[in-house]
């Protein structure tokens, strides 16, 4: 159940998972807000318990006026194999890009061909994956219940697809470079 460091990697892996199990995989987006003061209070309480009766008032008064902080967690989960892929962020700047990448993954869920510009790659991709894909599928059928085996099969199957999502990753990569400059 890994958390990925970059959204590109999450997107790539999720695309591969969807490729292997398009009808059972679901993507959950959780937007969660925690009151920062409550968090601090809990921490302070712990600290107080540890210290035991050492001026409780001074530590609690310093915690106020911080706005609540939210975070966003993206989770791709396939109940059949138990595969879970996650990505977590607190940056508002990433939201619309992430939702649009949900849209890209949605295209795969809907079994639509890749958007224009990648059609050329897609045109021969099915042929390429057919051979490898068939073998991987057989492996999956045999060992449906065992999680590591299915993920291995998925990896083999995904090879043909690697280039396309790589292309998508390249586009997003630009955004990352910009971030690096500041």
């Amino acid at each position: 159940m890994p958390y990925y460091d970059t959204s590109q990697e999450w997107l790539r892996q999720s695309a591969l998972l969807l490729e292997a199990r398009p009808s059972t995989t679901r993507i959950t987006t959780k937007y969660h807000i925690t009151a920062s003061s409550a968090r601090r209070r809990a921490r302070d309480l712990k600290r107080l318990k540890a210290q035991q009766e050492s001026e409780p008032t001074t530590t609690t008064t310093s915690t106020t006026t911080k706005p609540p902080r939210g975070f966003l967690t993206l989770k791709t989960f396939d109940p059949h194999s138990g595969t879970t892929l996650k990505y977590k962020t607190t940056k508002a700047a990433e939201v619309s890009r992430l939702i649009l990448s949900l849209g890209q993954l949605g295209r795969r869920m809907a079994a639509l061909p890749e958007p224009e510009g990648r059609d050329a790659v897609m045109a021969d991709a099915p042929v390429a994956t057919e051979g490898g894909g068939e073998a991987a599928v057989v492996v999956e059928e045999k060992e449906k219940k065992s999680e590591p085996a299915t993920t291995a099969g998925k990896g083999g199957q995904g090879q043909g697809q690697g280039q396309q999502s790589g292309g998508g990753g390249g586009g997003v990569g630009k955004g990352k470079k910009k971030k690096g400059k500041k």
């Binding site: 679901r26 993507i27 959950t28 937007y31 807000i33 003061s37 993954l105 949605g106």
Partner: peptide, 10 residues
């Protein structure tokens, strides 16, 4: 100041 919203797609 707390709570969640959960969005799912499949």
């Amino acid at each position: 100041d707390h709570g969640s919203i959960v969005l799912t797609q499949k």
